[in-house]
Design a protein around this nucleic acid. Sequence first.
DNA 1: CCTGTGCCCTGACAGC
DNA 2: TGCTGTCAGGGCACAG
Length: 263
Amino acid sequence: MPELPEVQCVVNTLNRIQSRTIERVTINAKQLREPLSDTLADQLVGKRIVRLSRRAKFIVIELSEGFLLIHLGMTGKLLINAAAQNHDHVIIDLSGGLSLTYNDTRRFGLIAYSECLESSRHLAGLGVEPLEPVFCGQWLFDNTRGVKRNIKTYLLDQRHVVGLGNIYVCEVLYLCGISPFRPAGAIGEQDAEMLAREIKKILRKAIDLGGSSISDYRDANNAKGDFQQRFHVYGREEDRLGNEVNYQKVGGRGTFWVDAIQA
DNA sequence: CCTGTGCCCTGACAGC
DNA sequence: TGCTGTCAGGGCACAG
């Protein structure tokens, strides 16, 4: 579900928990993407929430000692003061009467404590942040030389550029007129410039609009995003010009594109 | 090394 | 009604 904009919007709406102390941790599920650590509750209780940030699609909660890493997978939600529901896997009670609930229908998400970010195996190997200056047309051009796999699969691979998921990749390739099937190594300098620029633009715009809510996504206040109304191809049968939108699985993921626009 | 496939899990929806 | 198949925003293990 959540790609970079959605994760950023969750982080942005978590402000209220800053400087609270973790008083109690209730774990209902034995396992999410991987088994929940037996020691998780002990590692969290008594610690204070210092700062909230994002790395790739991870929510990073800096504690007075250590870090709590949360990945939302496809259907994960992190909600403040939510009423109890099915699939509430972890509930964190905070000082001041606040609670943080991790709810995840499909359990593809992840919650893990880490002493330090540098040694976290979950963050190891992640690529560059697309909204940072290091990611630019030149970076994209240089790093795709000789790459045979298609550009769509390349952009989805978190070892290169992080944060992009299936929706934003489909959208940005459409906006740039680039076919999802084009080999990454065949992207020219001009197209690399345009791709990098449009990726930054669409991510920023999506964050401004509160992310995209297809079905599950909610921010920490349980609010939906609005960016799904701006889609050009994802989940659509026609683009805004009336062109037919094609659909096919690419690398196991549903892929939307328009032949008349993308080459 | 790189690439493609299947799997983890639940729920919604279409078709019979 | 209820069965079956397919699909879903992610990421990993594995085979070739």
